[in-house]
Write a protein that binds this DNA or RNA. Structure first.
Length: 459
RNA sequence: GGCGCGGUAGCCAAGUGGUAAGGCCGAGGUCUGCAAAACCUCUAUGCGUCGGUUCAAUUCCGACCCGCGCCUCCA
């Protein structure tokens, strides 16, 4: 069964297949803007895309997938924040892209094959803008900015079906103040390709045929996608919030510039909600990976929790779901240990339902359900290598959880030694009393046949 | 106002025109002196409400109620 995804453009399931003669599947995933630590809502999208990347590799072969994910390292926020910290833009964004990479690694997300940056592709962006201007799809304004002329593209808005939206009166837009540079635009829906330098941009400007300035947001993805994957790609993904205007505008730029279809398929993952609402600073319901680590949550539990909901459905995140995830991972860990011990061999067919679910529009909840159905039947006839292949697809690692780093107080260590000695001497009354003392000190003592370990007591 | 998505057990969450996967929690049990872990068993006559179609609807249709997202630079 081929991998099928719900295509945002045609609004139906479409099978994935490479369209180029070299058989390489071309996959572009909109990456982060690096101005702060990414939050777990951002990571939902990246984890889903990592799952997709893994499935593509399993389907077409590792050498037949080219995964590009950009870093947006110049925009209003990166410029403003770097200036607030009195740091050079590149220095500032490197800090946050490094942090992003570390978090991705913790979540076991494979690095993309190419990770282009906006500032590293200024020339490519200028080239595209120049073509658009030459073809009459763009115009410059008095201040030296360049805008895309939405009216020049007859079928603008296919992806978000903007025409249906704007035919109606009384949209929320009508009551909203337009953006600062709105009066420069010929039409409210035109968008910036090149933004003329403004004093508040500081040193962050590049020379161009239109004078000093910087690229608009959307053009970077069009340029980087074209450079690294070609004019027509097989799949373009991102969060639903990018559907409009970002992806709509990418289509407009790329297709008007290249005269070729941009992406054959569009896939958008839904938002992670917290407390039933989209995460946002103002609501104070925003979590980063570090916030969760501080609560003792393992990144792998977060990955599992993020996969526990259907990617195209809003997922309401709760700390409870992380607990459930930790327990589920423990069950899988125990199952794999049993498999390894029994040297179980079998065919891969038992996991077919798991892959069938994943191939069916990344139905991760159904896939996990199918996985546990196998686990619950027991290890007989289950192939260990096949099980590991499932884990690879899901990107789940089952290393023993790292005990929270906490120094064991000498007093507790001493109590534990005494208790172990009492237990060896079969003085169980004393051993039980010592266990209570250790617990009172906030630790729990876990016995094994050949020794013991100490862990901070769970609440 | 428009566009889109959703309402399934205490919580999370799949799914199907023919009688409800899975995870967590909870209960009982096996095992280990105890504890922990592991393992076993049990846990929705019902799928937002009201109508309709049908031999049969949670699944299709209609109306309604409730929640969420997007509507110009947010994954």
């Amino acid at each position: 069964m081929p991998i099928q995804l719900f295509d945002s453009l045609t609004r139906q399931l479409q099978p994935l297949a490479p369209s180029h003669a070299d058989g390489v599947f071309r996959f572009y995933n909109c990456g982060p803007t690096v101005y702060a630590p990414a939050h777990i809502g951002n990571f939902r999208t990246f984890v889903v895309n990592d799952l997709l990347r893994r499935l593509l590799e399993l389907e077409f072969g590792p050498a037949k997938v080219k995964h590009v994910r950009n870093i947006t390292d110049v925009d209003d926020k990166t410029i403003r924040r770097s200036q607030e910290e009195k740091r050079a833009l590149g220095d500032f964004t490197k800090q946050w892209s490094d942090k992003f990479h570390a978090d991705c690694a913790a979540l076991n997300c494979l690095p993309p094959h190419v990770e282009p940056t906006a500032t590293g592709h200024i020339a490519e962006q200028i080239d595209m803008i120049a073509v658009l201007e030459r073809k009459g799809h763009a115009y410059r304004t008095a201040d030296g900015s360049v805008y895309f002329k939405v009216g020049s593209m007859p079928d603008y808005g296919r992806l978000s079906r903007i025409k249906e939206r704007e035919l109606q009166l009384g949209s929320a837009l009508s009551g909203k103040p337009q953006t600062a540079d709105a009066d420069e635009k010929e039409d409210g829906s035109d968008f910036a390709l090149w933004k003329a330098h403004k004093p508040e941009d500081g040193a962050n400007a590049w020379e161009s045929p239109w004078g000093r300035g910087r690229p608009g947001w959307h053009i970077e993805c069009s340029a980087m996608s074209k450079k690294h994957l070609g004019e027509t790609i097989d799949l373009h993904t991102g969060g639903v919030d990018l559907l409009f205007p970002h992806h709509e505008n990418e289509i407009a730029q790329s297709e008007c510039c290249n005269g070729a279809p941009f992406s054959r398929l569009w896939y958008h993952s839904e938002h992670l909600l917290v407390d039933g609402k989209k995460m946002s600073k103002s609501l104070g319901n925003l979590y980063t990976l570090d916030d969760l680590k501080a609560k003792g949550v393992s990144p792998m539990a977060l990955r599992y929790a993020l996969l526990a909901g259907h990617p195209r459905k809003q997922l309401n995140f709760t700390l409870d779901s992380l607990h459930a995830a930790e327990k589920a991972l423990a069950t899988l860990r125990a199952f794999r240990a049993t498999l390894a011990a029994s040297g179980s061999r079998g065919d891969e067919a038992v996991f077919a339902p798991v892959f069938a679910a994943l191939h069916d529009d990344l139905n991760t909840p159904a896939a996990l359900g199918a996985l546990f159905t196998v686990v619950n039947r027991g290890p007989a006839g289950v192939d260990a290598a096949a099980f590991d292949r499932v884990l690879f697809a899901l990107g789940l690692t089952l290393d023993a959880p790292v005990a929270p780093k906490a120094d064991i107080p000498a007093a507790v260590a001493a109590l534990a030694e005494k208790r172990w000695a009492a237990k060896q001497a079969k003085d169980f009354a004393a051993a039980d009393a010592l266990r209570k003392e250790i617990a009172a000190a906030g630790w729990s003592m876990l016995d094994r046949k050949d020794g013991y370990s100490l862990e901070p007591a769970k609440k």
